[in-house]
């Protein structure tokens, strides 16, 4: 119990004093996971919308693949990305292993199926005739898709929150492809793992609290956007 109180005190100190190291780690977490989420948003929403609207052979199989991808274990993604960008791997020449870019790639792979799966469901739950209604008002296919995406904005923002929540809290892939290098590729989760391992529980708790606060604030902003024009 004392440990937790000590941790909270430490967290307070670190936040108030704007500890440069903690600040750097926090900002890097935010940048890496934010970028990864943005990439996933673009890929996930477009692919999800295409699968939701298109009619092709093996569509159900593709949808179950996407849904499985929503539960992709970060360590497996980490392993896969590591193999790909390993010095002798197919993308080894890029020399990006143990860089923030590698974390962004791994996290984007984790978040894309999550956003894709929720987007798919969001577009599918719109009334079937809505597509025809929009087309009958003279829309081109592209205009129709854009209107549908706007119409599904509520669940789509939920998809963004789920994607961001998934990657900001993920540790397996970050530690494998990022390497937890101090001042370079150390993010909140990898730092927490390290501090706990070293027995510095107070710092670990402080980092955990900062992580929670960060996730809360980002979601607060997204929720504000989502609920701004709440349809009655």
């Amino acid at each position: 119990m004392e440990l937790i109180l000590e941790g909270i005190k430490k967290a307070f100190e670190l936040i108030v004093s704007l500890d440069p190291e903690v600040l750097g780690i926090t900002l890097l977490s935010l940048q890496v996971s934010g970028l990864a989420t943005f990439i996933s948003l673009v890929l996930g929403v477009s692919a999800g919308t295409v699968v939701a609207l298109a009619n092709f052979r093996g569509r159900k199989f593709v949808i179950s693949l996407i849904n499985t991808g929503m539960g992709l274990p970060p360590v497996v993604v980490g392993l896969f990305v590591t193999i790909m960008i390993w010095r002798n791997g197919p993308f080894g020449f890029l020399e990006i292993l143990y860089t923030p870019l590698a974390i962004i790639i791994a996290q984007a792979i984790i978040a894309t199926p999550i956003i894709m799966g929720i987007s798919l469901a969001a577009i599918q739950q719109l009334p079937e005739n809505l597509r025809l209604q929009i087309l009958s008002l003279g829309a081109t296919r592209l205009q129709m898709v854009w209107v549908l995406i706007k119409e599904a904005r509520l669940p789509l923002l939920a998809a963004v929150m789920a994607g961001f929540g998934g990657v900001i809290s993920e540790v397996g892939a970050s530690i494998m492809v990022g390497g937890n290098i101090k001042g370079y590729s150390r993010v909140l989760t990898t730092a927490t793992v390290m501090e706990t391992g070293k027995g510095n529980f107070d710092v670990a708790i402080a980092l955990g609290i900062i992580l929670l606060l960060l996730a809360f604030m980002v979601n607060l902003v997204l929720t504000q956007i989502q609920q701004r024009q709440r349809p009655r």
Binding site: P127, N129, L130, L132, Q133
Partner: peptide, 9 residues
Amino acid sequence: AAVVFQEPL
């Protein structure tokens, strides 16, 4: 041509 469906949509 414009279509009005059964539901207002």
